[in-house]
Design a protein around this nucleic acid. Structure first.
Lengths: 341, 341
DNA sequence: CTGAAAGCGCTAACAC
DNA sequence: GTGTTAGCGCTTTCAG
């Protein structure tokens, strides 16, 4: 493992000159530059990154705190983060937190231990955030924070939920159930607001019994759908706060022999890859997963490099994607087989 | 940012004693240990990881090279890696290579630059591997390498494909198509071997026209299924080398009005989360994704810490999961609606 | 059991 | 333009 010293010896120059040739070649004469490069080659020199990091107090690493790596949506965000970081010559240190705050805090310490220059958080409710963000560069994306102690990028969840609800109302539905995320999540609360906005605008009474909690996973969607089917007056449409829950709900409806969208319209949220491969393809709200990752990296690096942020809290665009899982409840009498086969 | 020196001053001991208290407490007297711990507390001391890494020539970081982070299967493997690494106090540096060998080589250099202690590769065909693995700790999982230059963990792909084919034959199928992965992949070749083993054992002639190439994505499965439907004599079953391709194929069959499994049996590979939520739920081969990650970490850390490996090339267990997408071609006359709704 | 001191590989003043 | 030199924070001999 040849060091800069070995290269200097080979090139017949000082270590400082080697360092300069590598870092700021313009201040070195072309002739010495040549010599140094030749020596680098000859020595098979590879700079020791740990020494550079140690010396420069910069690691060019970002830590990413994610509740569940294997989640289809998060995986796309991570992919976007990795992509953007790589372009800026930053590395990505990945941490699966399982929503465990202790693990989160522990990993965030990597930054105070100078193993990383900043952290990207993909979730909300963080006591540790409040204290930590004061001292270390941090951003939060995808989730909603009520009093964000750091820059954020989110969706306009209220508007998105309103649009979806309006779409269902426009189809002719008036009894629209909602399978929700965890109760205490601000994100879920915002979406409820949008749902109620749309209801109110259409003069439809809000019915609390049509609200079921879930945890964004298929099994929770399945369970919620089951409960909805036991209601004295069934809804004619179900709006799920994640495609995964919608997929679980779809399974339940299929097993119960209920045709979608013939007898029940179903909508999701996220537009994961499999949404278009459902039977029937799922109406949903597309979230710009990779763009969340890019925004996170962009903002975090600005923070790290002490550049001012133009926008502290970004709102990324969503898009209502209408596929075949939602239709008019009138058509539900006919029950087009096209929706099922 | 208080350093070890500050702690030493506060505790009234030397820096060496502080270092020892932190690293090898057993060689320090209980009394001094107390004093040091108190001083650490008082100073709010956080060890500087970059200094430790630099000094000790160990980073406790693993780099993971993955072709596509957002792939459902890889995401699970990554999750397993992260989990296992965390348990061993190692960090995970994630790199999306897009199968680009230049990027892979560049990232592998992180190790020679001592930014990481070893690399986990999740794919095959790597010219750089041959040279690199000689010098740096590296393992390869999930993929198949013909002349592995490093420890590996794989499936017995031949046996798995044989089992699935046998299952289809046992159902009564004799014309079984296969939608395959990229041609040059050894993994895909092994699975073809297993497919032919089963065919031969059942006395069924091999028909090359039933083999279609794909790239593991849903669109490629869709396209391949389309081509199969134009065949003069259609197969009665399709075996896809990934669930994602099966999902694409299922979409195609649905659009063509072909009932699964009534008119066509369909099988996948991987057992991704959505396989059981397909309509009908997909028969597939379950791969132990997280276990691949754990095996990778275990072997790599052994390599790094120069402990001998009991097994150089591990074969992880697979499992045939029979769901509703495969059935007897005899039953295909009746076409149970339960399969579709 | 503890302290003094010598670096790990690199950068950045500061001289020349 | 280039060389000399003093560390960055920590570990680790080597003495005591």
């Amino acid at each position: 493992m040849s060091s800069i010293r070995e290269v200097a010896r080979l090139a017949g120059v000082s270590v400082a000159t080697v360092s300069r040739t590598l870092k700021t070649p313009e201040v070195v004469s072309p002739a010495t530059r040549e010599k140094v490069h030749a020596a680098v080659e000859a020595a098979g020199y590879r700079p020791n990154l740990t020494a550079i990091q140690f010396r420069s107090q910069r690691t060019r690493n970002l830590v990413v705190l994610v509740p569940k790596i294997a989640n289809t949506f998060f995986a796309r965000v991570i992919s976007g983060i990795q992509q953007a970081a790589q372009a800026c010559h930053y590395g990505v240190l990945l941490c699966n937190t399982h929503g465990d705050e202790q693990i989160e805090a522990q990993y965030a310490q990597l930054v105070s231990s100078r193993q990383a220059d900043g952290v990207i958080q993909l979730r909300a409710f963080d006591p540790f955030l409040e204290g930590a963000s004061a001292t270390l560069p941090m951003v939060n994306v995808c989730e909603v924070l009520d009093a964000p102690p750091c820059p954020t990028a989110t969706l306009d969840n209220r508007a998105a939920a309103r649009e979806m609800t309006e779409h269902l109302i426009a189809c002719g539905h008036r009894r629209i159930a909602m399978i929700k995320g965890p109760r205490r999540s601000p994100l879920t609360r915002d979406r409820l607001l949008g749902y109620r906005d749309a209801l109110a605008a259409a003069g439809i009474d809000f019915d609390e019994s049509l609200l079921l909690p879930g945890d964004f996973t298929p099994p929770s969607g399945y369970a919620a759908a089951q409960r909805l089917l036991t209601l004295p007056v069934r809804p004619s449409a179900i709006f799920c706060e994640s495609d995964e829950m919608a997929i679980g709900a779809l399974q339940c409806l299929r097993e119960a022999g209920i045709d979608v969208p013939g007898e029940m319209s179903l909508a999701g949220f996220d537009d994961i890859e499999f949404a278009r491969f459902c039977a029937p393809p799922l109406t949903t709200i597309a979230q710009p997963a990779e763009a969340f990752g890019e925004a996170a990296v962009e903002m975090l690096i600005a923070l790290i490099e002490q550049r001012p942020l133009e926008i502290e809290h970004r709102v990324l665009p969503h898009r209502l994607v209408v596929r075949e899982s939602t239709a008019s409840p009138v058509a539900q009498q006919g029950g087009s087989p096209l929706g099922v086969i």
